[in-house]
Design a protein around this nucleic acid. Structure first.
Lengths: 163, 163
DNA sequence: TTGGCTCGGTTGACACTTCAAGCTAGGCTG
DNA sequence: CAGCCTAGCTTGAAGTGTCAACCGAGCCAA
């Protein structure tokens, strides 16, 4: 690193940041790969399945589902469109307020999730939890919530959500 | 969560995983936004600039650069193509072995990085380091390296790299 | 030296995300 | 109750990453 190098981080911070940056890139890619390989779906689609499966009537408004799945409404609309073609979901206007659209998980969608979830959970365990001590697992939760709060002060209380 | 819900994680693990999942999605997005807004470049392009800036002669083989920037050779090729048009880099066959291509940072590219880095470092500090205690910062480094190693046992020793 | 092999790199087609514009239902204001 | 406004959602176009096929330089074996 030469003398004109723009101001950067202290050495130990740099090591931490490099490790984190690698995780930020590689971990989602690895999880996506596992889902793609074993189930032919993206992590985002998986989150949509999980979101709907945990909701009453297996039904959620598109806008709520978008928040849950951490994506834009536009992206969700495209994806649910594809999932409708696959027979995993269907859409219908909210009878109580026609401005909303309800996304509903079909039985086929439920079956898809049941078939997919164990393998994915296994991958999360293998890549995230198993390499860490119990103490580190707890630390990671706290650290994640703190960073979350810094990134998006408004939405981070959603961390308390159930599945 | 109803009784037929597919097997999932224990409650505390679930909380940790949800927090981490949020970070995995939102933190890169936030950092990308900052770079896009302030400098009009993606995080990947930024990494390319950093990689070249720290190399001898500000020059690196495409394949080494791809590893450093955590991306595929194909992606790098497209991106360096765009950066060449912007005048930030140029390419030339390696004189010592024509099979390799050398990517070289131009003065304009160097200037671009110098103009961009401080703001980006600031964002990393604000979103990652500031919300954590010193102890957590150290923990995060260790945790990151462990997960890194689990995700990609081959490449994770690169964590020891300097910029 | 010539033919085949390996591998770094490029290219073009396809898929997906994003962005901006548009549509429609319901609320609100006159 | 008529017209406007807001907001949820959809849609099509444009940009970007991925994938697979391809190209060409050097190596090696016959």
């Amino acid at each position: 690193m030469d003398a004109q190098q723009p101001r950067w981080l202290a050495d130990d911070e740099m090591q931490t940041w490099l490790a984190l940056a690698r995780v930020l890139i590689r971990l989602p890619a690895a999880l996506d790969d596992q889902l793609q390989r074993d189930a032919g779906i993206s992590h985002f689609e998986y989150q949509v399945l999980v979101g709907l499966s945990g909701a009453p009537e297996r039904t959620l408004r598109m806008s709520s589902l978008a928040v849950f799945a951490n994506g834009s409404l536009s992206r969700l609309s495209h994806v649910v469109g594809r999932m409708e073609k696959a027979g995993w979901a269907r859409r219908t206007p909210d009878p109580t307020d026609g401005r909303y659209t309800l996304a509903i998980l079909t039985d086929a969608g439920w079956d898809k999730l049941v078939a997919t979830a164990p393998g994915h959970v296994e991958a999360v365990r293998a890549l995230v939890f198993d390499p860490l001590t119990r103490a580190q697992q707890r630390q990671l939760g706290d650290i994640g919530r703190r960073i979350s709060r810094a990134v998006d002060p408004a939405g981070s209380h959603l961390d308390e959500l159930s599945t």
